[in-house]
Design a binder for these strands. Structure first.
Length: 110
DNA sequence: CCCGTGACGACAT
DNA sequence: TATGTCGCCACGG
């Protein structure tokens, strides 16, 4: 999309997230080199709704594993999607988040 | 060009 | 440990 280098970069990383895994906005931001723009990652995700192919934004959560984006998805849609992939979501937060955490700075750095 | 906003994160209290 | 506040960068108006 245009020169949305930053946004597109976020989409690319988000799409690389394996099923049943989750990552954090800060992790993606750090991987892009803009650690301080963690908010922008989420902001980009909002626009990801029109991105093609669609970005699994539901696999992206905050550093606490809390489904902050769920509020934007509407209802428990995000939780349903995560559980559908085998991720346990309780009280709007990912269980074993630390174990399911997918760090692009590490996984993609191999 | 300046101001406000935001799906976060880290630090301070 | 929990709550509060500030900072961060990119984009829209």
């Amino acid at each position: 999309m245009k020169d949305d280098n930053f946004f597109e970069r976020v989409y690319e990383v988000a799409r690389l997230i394996p099923p049943g895994r989750v990552t954090s906005y800060g992790a993606i931001a750090a991987y892009l080199g803009t650690k301080g723009s963690s908010r922008m990652v989420g902001y980009a995700m909002q626009a990801s709704g029109k991105a093609i192919p669609p970005v699994p934004a539901h696999r992206v959560v905050n550093r606490q594993g809390l489904l902050t984006a769920k509020f934007h998805f509407g209802g428990n849609l995000m939780a349903e999607l995560l559980e559908s992939e085998g991720i346990k979501v309780i009280d709007d937060k990912v269980q074993d988040f630390k174990n399911l955490f997918w760090d692009p700075a590490v996984e993609l750095a191999i």
